[in-house]
Simulated scan of single mutants.
Amino acid sequence: MELYSPEGLRIDGRRWNELRRFECRINTHPNSSDGSSYVEQGNTKVMCTVQGPVEPTLRSQQHSEHANVEVNLTIANFATFERKKRNKNEKRLIELKNLLEKTFEESIMINLYPRTNIIINVQVLSQDGGMLAAVANAITLAVIDAGIAMYDYVSSICCGLYDTTPLLDLNNLEENDMSSLTIGVIGKSEKLALLLLEDKMPLDRLENILSIGIAGSHKIRELMDQEVRKHGNLRASKMMK
């Protein structure tokens, strides 16, 4: 199967610098959590809820100067074509959980919430490439919905390199067949909150891939910001009545 045709088209008809369909909603579970969100990037679907800041149940989780950020990541058995039971102690899940915790400890103003826990629960319902990016975007929206102070949006995207051509927002087939890079960009800047490269990539191509990834992340940030503002205006209009 040809991932990138001579005409410059990918399997799903996109060009090299085009995003997949991106949809997001916040406040999806208002009665069961402090903040919640739902994100679709292509066929990758992620649901996220946030509890907190709450008092820790264990003394070991209590930090006198800042909040403790805890991420629980689960992938549904039906998320991929191959149905398989996934263990919470799977090495890959633990690595992603630790990476997300470090990312959001730096992005949330944890010094404002000493001696508390911020619990983030993420459920991946469908996995079709760019899973880590979709999870990071869902967490950002759920944390904002919970009213927890952040320095700025963390908008995330997955990019890859096919021969010498950089590709933006990879689907599952592309991700399995080429070197891929996931980045999370802080707001409108070019600073990175998240960077994960799991395969070898030529150093002279890296700058080019990072630049298209940052541009793609900025587009996603705009879409996320539109949803947050729309929800904010809806809440404001209800309060005015």
Rank of each mutant, 00 (worst) to 15 (best):
A67Y: 01
K84G: 07
N27L: 00
G8L: 04
L73H: 08
N172C: 12
N87P: 00
H63W: 07
Y162P: 04
T140M: 06
K85P: 06
H29G: 02
D145T: 01
L125Q: 12
G213A: 03
S217G: 15
H63A: 08
N87W: 08
N121L: 08
P202N: 04
Y162T: 03
I75T: 11
A215D: 13
T140G: 05
S156Q: 01
S107I: 10
L168H: 06
I214G: 02
R15P: 09
M240S: 14
L161E: 06
I119M: 09
Y153T: 06
T140Y: 09
E40A: 10
C159V: 11
G42F: 04
K191S: 11
F78L: 14
A236T: 11
E222T: 13
R21E: 12
A76Q: 12
I148H: 03
N233A: 11
N176T: 10
K191E: 14
P202Y: 03
A146K: 00
L19T: 05
E90I: 05
V50E: 04
G52T: 01
C159R: 04
K230M: 11
I94V: 15
I139A: 05
N121F: 09
Y162W: 11
T103A: 05
D12C: 00
Q123P: 00
K88H: 13
L93V: 10
E70P: 00
N89C: 10
D169T: 01
P202M: 02
S64F: 11
L125E: 13
R205Q: 15
D34W: 02
E23N: 14
E175C: 08
T28E: 08
Q51A: 12
K102Y: 01
D177W: 03
I119N: 09
D34R: 04
E175T: 06
D225R: 13
E82C: 08
N137E: 03
L206D: 09
I118G: 01
I110E: 02
A76R: 07
N176E: 15
T28S: 10
N233C: 11
E101P: 03
I118L: 05
K102W: 01
N89W: 06
G213I: 05
K84W: 06
A134P: 04
S37C: 09
R86C: 09
D34V: 01
F104Q: 02
E70H: 13
S107W: 03
G147C: 02
I26Y: 00
Q127A: 15
K200R: 12
S64T: 12
A134N: 06
M224C: 12
N98M: 12
E90H: 14
G8S: 05
E70I: 15
R92S: 14
M224G: 10
K188S: 15
G129S: 07
R83Q: 15
G35P: 01
I212N: 04
C159Y: 06
L141Y: 08
R229C: 12
R59G: 11
L203F: 11
E174K: 07
K238A: 10
R10S: 07
R20M: 01
L9D: 02
I186M: 12
S36L: 03
A236D: 09
N68K: 12
Q61C: 11
L195Y: 06
R229H: 15
A79L: 09
S155Q: 05
K230H: 13
S211E: 14
D128M: 07
D34E: 07
I139Q: 06
Y113G: 06
M178L: 10
Q226H: 13
L223A: 12
E106N: 15
